[in-house]
């Protein structure tokens, strides 16, 4: 447990030392979302209709940007070998890395999402649920993405391969994340969707680190 916390602290410190990485992801998120009004046209009704989907899809894509570095840097400087050899279970350490990843990418995405919601003319009722759904959904994205990062460790063209593997796995999060906010906008209860999002998180919280750890062990074999 202590080593997991130490790893978490180390990853956060590393991320703080290069804040540009985090900022790139957020900038990508904002820029892609801003392209939609330019592509679709500025009509408020159309924008309001697609706002939720655009925010979620761009959030997925922005998340993807950061995964190829999740284990790659550690693998290159050899610290991944040390992490794998540590007495603490690798699954726990992977979880710590996922938490760190979420804190430096998922959390900033949530913080800027209201700005995008304003750009895209999201109806006011959607805002609280937007934040809530992203808060429950983005950790799942980090966990699932870690599986992809572990699997593509040392692969040729891992940057292209990773989205191919991870995006299909993201479908449930996307569907229920969007459904929750759209329900809130339509004046319907968002609770069932949020509960399913929570269920997805509860499922991936134990399973994703197991799969990621298995992938990393094979990569280091």
């Amino acid at each position: 447990m202590m080593s997991a916390l130490a790893l978490l602290r180390r990853d956060l410190r590393l991320a703080l030392r290069t804040p540009g990485d985090s900022a790139t992801v957020v900038l990508f998120f904002v820029l892609t979302a801003v392209l939609f009004p330019l592509g679709v046209g500025p009509e408020p009704n159309i924008l309001a209709r697609i706002a939720v989907g655009v925010i979620w899809v761009t959030a997925l894509l922005a998340c993807l940007l950061s995964f190829d570095r999740l284990f790659q840097l550690d693998a290159e400087d050899g610290s991944l070998d040390l992490i794998a050899l540590a007495p603490a279970p690798l699954e726990l350490l992977v979880l710590a890395k996922c938490v760190a990843h979420w804190l430096v990418t998922g959390l900033p995405l949530i913080i800027v999402s209201p700005v995008l919601a304003i750009f895209l003319n999201l109806p006011g009722e959607g805002y609280p649920v937007l934040l809530l759904a992203l808060a429950i959904g983005t950790p799942t994205l980090s966990l699932i993405g870690a599986i992809g990062a572990g699997l593509t460790l040392g692969a040729r063209r891992s940057g292209v391969l990773l989205p191919l593997l991870v995006l299909p796995l993201y479908v449930p999060v996307l569907v229920f994340g969007v459904a929750a906010i759209e329900a809130a906008v339509a004046g319907l209860p968002a609770r069932p969707h949020l509960l399913i999002l929570g269920g997805l998180l509860a499922l991936s919280l134990p399973l994703a680190p197991v799969a990621t750890a298995a992938a990393i062990r094979q990569a280091l074999e």
Binding site: I147, L151, T152, G154, A155, R156, R157, S158, L161, L164, L165, P168, A211, A214, A215, Q218, A219, E221
Partner: peptide, 22 residues
């Protein structure tokens, strides 16, 4: 994705194992 991952490594065993996890 499975096919791409299988063939993405110089070591074919690594490819099949990663694809198996996937």
């Amino acid at each position: 994705g499975h096919i791409a991952l299988t063939n993405a490594f110089d070591d074919p065993t690594r490819g099949t194992r990663a694809a198996a996890v996937l």
